[in-house]
């Protein structure tokens, strides 16, 4: 896969994750019983760990339900990507969050442990994303997709941000500001071209909308550990009562990264 070492932060899990990870040789595991919210949604933990251990390394910071797809990922390992980024003097690599969902109601298909989540959730929205520039940090702010369409049609401003910069050649002094949506110093947020060209970028396939989601949304609402007074999760819980079907006849079925590139969701840039 091209990853030399994994760092996990485990926060109050109760499903054996901790025990499993502790056994792995290339994993360093931190456990926190403290509040995810008080740690600025985990970012304080991550920033501290990276400050301590990540200096000079390419770091991929992702949630366990995010799966990175980048140009040529079927034929070239991560190391090829980071070597190319190094050779091109690029320090950060953007990968938008792409919400994946099943066809039919979420409860209809049951996700089993160790299953590829995209066997079930293999559909996505191809072209309903809205982009603005964030003047403060210089990053793009992307919203849209099934979450805006289904859960926030009346209040789009609340729709969650989909822009992410998960892969960074870390230097001491770098810091993630809000999740992996943006960083400091600001230059790292410039993962897009402003003069008409396309920079290379990937996608984070988001395996959120599985049958487990309804329970998870309720649980998260209970824990009250999420951003902006858990507005997001309140909206989910409300809609999830009717067990919605995110699929529509214009949904795209996921094939591979080339499909995402043709649709304009990601780009090879000048990597050939």
């Amino acid at each position: 896969m091209g990853v030399n070492h994994f760092i996990f932060v485990e926060n109050n899990s109760d499903d054996g994750t901790r025990e499993y990870l502790a056994e792995q040789e290339d994993v360093s595991l931190w456990t926190s019983k403290a509040s995810y919210k008080r740690a600025r949604f985990g970012m304080d933990w991550l920033n501290w760990l990276m400050r301590k251990y990540a200096n000079g390394h390419w770091c991929l910071t992702i949630d366990p339900d995010e799966f990175l797809v980048y140009p040529f990922c079927d034929t070239r390992g991560l190391r090829a990507l980071t070597d190319w980024l190094d050779a091109s003097s690029i320090k950060s690599f953007g990968s938008m969050l792409l919400d994946m969902y099943p066809k039919g109601r979420m409860s209809e298909q049951t996700y089993a442990e160790n299953q590829d989540p995209f066997e079930i959730a293999n559909w996505f929205d191809a072209g309903n994303y809205m982009i603005e520039k964030n003047p403060k940090f210089g990053n793009l702010w992307i919203q849209g997709g099934p979450r805006a369409r289904m859960f926030f049609p009346d209040n789009p401003a609340r729709a969650p941000a989909l822009n992410k910069i998960p892969l960074v050649k870390w230097q001491r002094g770098y810091t993630y500001v809000s999740s992996t949506h943006n960083l400091l110093p600001r230059g790292l947020n410039l993962v897009y071209d402003e003069w008409g060209g396309e920079k290379a970028s990937g996608c984070l396939l988001h395996a959120k909308f599985l049958h487990t989601f309804a329970d998870k949304a309720a649980e998260e609402l209970e824990r009250r550990q999420h951003y902006a007074a858990s507005h997001e999760y309140r909206a989910y819980a409300e809609k999830l009562e009717d067990d919605p079907d995110l699929w529509c006849k214009w949904s795209e079925k996921y094939i591979n990264w080339r499909q995402l590139e043709i649709l304009g969701l990601m780009s090879k840039g000048n990597w050939a």
Partner: peptide, 8 residues
């Protein structure tokens, strides 16, 4: 095209 890595 307007996307995550092309925003002229």
């Amino acid at each position: 095209l307007y996307m995550q890595s092309r925003f002229p």
